[in-house]
């Protein structure tokens, strides 16, 4: 049985589908634009008002600044301690992610390629570590750092950061290594590469894409970490950015311009990294939940 349409009916049908497509497109773009505005607006508002003084903010918060007061940024950087915190954050983040990248890929190599006693236990220990709240170990960690004389030092932050970054990092690199064919190593062994060198010469270079994912993800996480910095750091010359920002908020509460500038200075590095590596970061953060092992 076939249905025949005359020309008029065909045109009506065509119009109907066209209208329906247009309606769907309209809904698609208006919904997404609306949501995008909700996301962007607060950031934009902070940006615009970071370049004004209090009077301008109160009189006309919506307008673009008449004079661009970059002095707000200078004030936040020097008087507000954001500059020194910025450098502290850079140091703590870089040292932490370098250690995480190396240590996690070594462990991932064992867990993906070698057979050894206790493998299952160790794997589940790390896997479980992905889901434990950092806050539960806060009190004993502080006690431990006190005994090691690491309270109010950057190493006192770096060691816990590395420990808490390991589970997810090992998980990501291990999954990647499992996907590398074993024939690659077998060929290397035939060529005379010693078992100890297999990691450095073959597996580590081959799994670099996953190591990069780990490093970029951990840069974002560690740059933004607040709770440990709040408890383990005491003096402002050691503060990392989130910690300095929180103190800054308390003392500059009435100076909106510099406060906004400080917020942006803390947020911009991760935003830039995200814009460059957006796909990698999004997939990395979602990895623990969508991968079925």
């Amino acid at each position: 049985m076939s249905i025949c349409f005359n020309r008029k009916e065909k045109r009506q049908l065509n119009d109907y589908f066209l209208w329906k497509r247009k309606r769907n497109t309209f809904f698609h773009y208006s919904f997404l634009s609306f949501y995008a505005i909700i996301v962007i607006f607060p950031i934009f508002w902070v940006l615009v008002n970071s370049l004004k003084d209090n009077l301008e903010i109160f009189q006309n918060p919506w307008a673009l600044p008449n004079i661009y007061r970059w002095s707000n940024y200078i004030k936040a950087w020097y008087e507000g301690n954001i500059g020194s915190a910025f450098f502290n954050s850079v140091i703590v983040t870089i040292i932490s992610v370098v250690i995480v990248g190396l240590v996690a890929s070594m462990a991932a190599y064992s867990l993906s390629r070698l057979q050894f006693a206790g493998k299952k236990t160790i794997f589940y220990l790390f896997l479980g570590g992905m889901y434990v709240a950092p806050v539960t170990s806060l009190i004993p960690l502080l006690k431990l750092l006190r005994n090691l004389n690491l309270v109010n030092t950057h190493w006192g932050l770096i060691f816990p950061y590395v420990a808490f970054a390991l589970p997810l990092s090992i998980f990501i690199i291990r999954s990647y290594m499992l996907g590398i064919p074993k024939t690659v190593e077998e060929a290397a062994i035939v060529d005379g590469v010693a078992p100890f060198q297999l990691f450095w010469k073959i597996m580590f270079p081959l799994s670099l894409p996953s190591v990069y994912t780990v490093v970029i993800l951990q840069i974002v996480y560690i740059w933004n970490e607040f709770l440990f910095a709040l408890v383990f750091l005491r003096t402002s010359n050691k503060f990392t950015l989130p910690r300095a920002l929180q103190v800054f908020q308390g003392s500059f509460i009435t100076e909106f311009g510099p406060l906004n500038a400080a917020v942006l200075l803390a947020a911009i590095p991760t935003i830039i990294i995200y814009i460059i590596f957006s796909e990698r970061i999004r997939n990395g953060m979602a990895i623990g939940f969508s991968s079925n092992e």
Partner: peptide
């Protein structure tokens, strides 16, 4: 997609 995920990378203190 980039915009929707953006808040996840900003420090929660900020």
């Amino acid at each position: 997609s980039t915009i929707v995920f953006l808040p996840m990378v900003i420090s929660l203190v900020a």
